[in-house]
Amino acid sequence: MNVREQFERELTQRGFSFTIDPESGRHLLTVDERQLKVSLDNLERELASDVDAERVARFVDTVIASAKPNTNDYAAERLFWSLEPNDHQEKADYCVAVSDSVDRVLVHLSACGSAISWVTPNVLEILGLSELEASDNAFANLSHEVDAATLEAQEVDGVPLGYVITALPFKAALILAPNLRQLVKDKLGWPVMAVVPDRDFLYLWGAQHQEFAGRVGPVVVREYTRSPYAISTEVYRIDDDGLQAVGAFPLPEEPN
């Protein structure tokens, strides 16, 4: 039984009927009079090698819970900007292009730290925030995470390669933090280069070693292709003027 079949079986066992959206191929179901459009893409990537029935059941729990969110869980201090590939069929309500293939998206992190959801106008209405105020909060919260984070560096081919230790479950977003410089300057220098193939994967190194990108390329491609929450194979330069994509590692061609 594949992921799609297991998902449909789980829905049926719980008494939910569904249809398939002809345009997107997503599952459509109604929970508490709210219609949900569910993509299985990330789940299928996560379970590509082994279909875990319990994991699918937890996914269904999350889908059902999304139809009746606990508004008491919303808090301005858990708003963040996160990184997302820009190939989603439906765009987030609040997103800004970072590069040709990546957007920063306004998200909310649940109090338990396990659920990451795109922010909607309804969430901002509940919080009593304007879009600008929410954006400011999101950047400030990333800065707080940088303050609490630790940078470790290991020499690879004579170049210090930085790894960030943080409780934030999407550490890739830290490259958007206004105060990133204070975290990296002592061990890596400034400006820096970065790769974020997955939302919880981040490598950093000094921009004076730009050619070092070739050394991390195979790791970036591997992490990107196997991750259920892939972002991009791009390489970024981060300096006082902000963040800019300066190249990308090519993906292997799919066999015919």
Rank of each mutant, 00 (worst) to 15 (best):
M1S: 11
N2F: 08
V3P: 02
T12S: 00
Q13I: 14
F16H: 05
F18G: 03
T19Q: 05
S24H: 10
L28V: 01
L29I: 00
E33M: 13
L36N: 00
L36F: 00
V38T: 03
S39G: 00
D41V: 02
D41P: 01
R45S: 07
R45Q: 11
L47R: 12
A48R: 12
A48N: 12
S49L: 14
S49D: 15
D50V: 06
A53M: 13
A53W: 10
A53C: 13
A53N: 14
V56L: 01
R58N: 12
R58V: 04
V60W: 06
V60C: 01
D61C: 08
D61L: 04
T62R: 05
V63G: 07
I64K: 01
A67F: 05
N70C: 08
T71S: 15
N72M: 13
Y74N: 03
A75D: 08
S82T: 11
P85S: 12
N86I: 02
D87Y: 01
H88P: 02
Q89K: 05
K91M: 06
Y94Q: 05
C95S: 15
C95W: 09
D100V: 03
S101D: 14
R104A: 01
V105N: 06
L106A: 04
H108T: 00
L109E: 02
L109N: 05
A111K: 10
C112N: 12
G113A: 08
S114N: 10
I116S: 02
V119C: 07
N122R: 11
V123Y: 05
L124R: 03
L127F: 07
L129M: 10
E131R: 01
E131T: 04
E131I: 04
L132P: 10
A138T: 06
N141D: 14
H144N: 14
E145L: 06
T150F: 13
T150H: 15
L151T: 12
L151I: 15
Q154T: 14
E155H: 12
G158I: 08
V159A: 02
P160L: 04
Y163Q: 05
I165T: 15
I165C: 13
I165P: 14
A167W: 09
P169G: 00
K171F: 09
A172G: 09
L174C: 14
L174S: 10
A177I: 05
A177V: 00
A177C: 04
R181Y: 09
Q182F: 01
L183N: 05
L183G: 01
V184Y: 10
V184G: 05
D186A: 07
L188W: 08
P191I: 13
V195F: 10
V196K: 02
V196D: 00
P197W: 03
R199A: 06
D200Q: 14
Y203R: 03
L204D: 06
W205N: 05
Q208W: 09
Q210N: 14
A213I: 05
G214I: 11
R215L: 08
V216A: 01
V216T: 06
G217Y: 08
V219R: 06
V221M: 14
V221W: 10
E223R: 10
Y224L: 02
S227D: 12
P228L: 00
A230L: 11
S232L: 07
T233E: 07
V235Y: 12
V235A: 10
Y236Q: 04
G242Y: 08
L243K: 12
A245P: 06
G247S: 13
L251R: 09
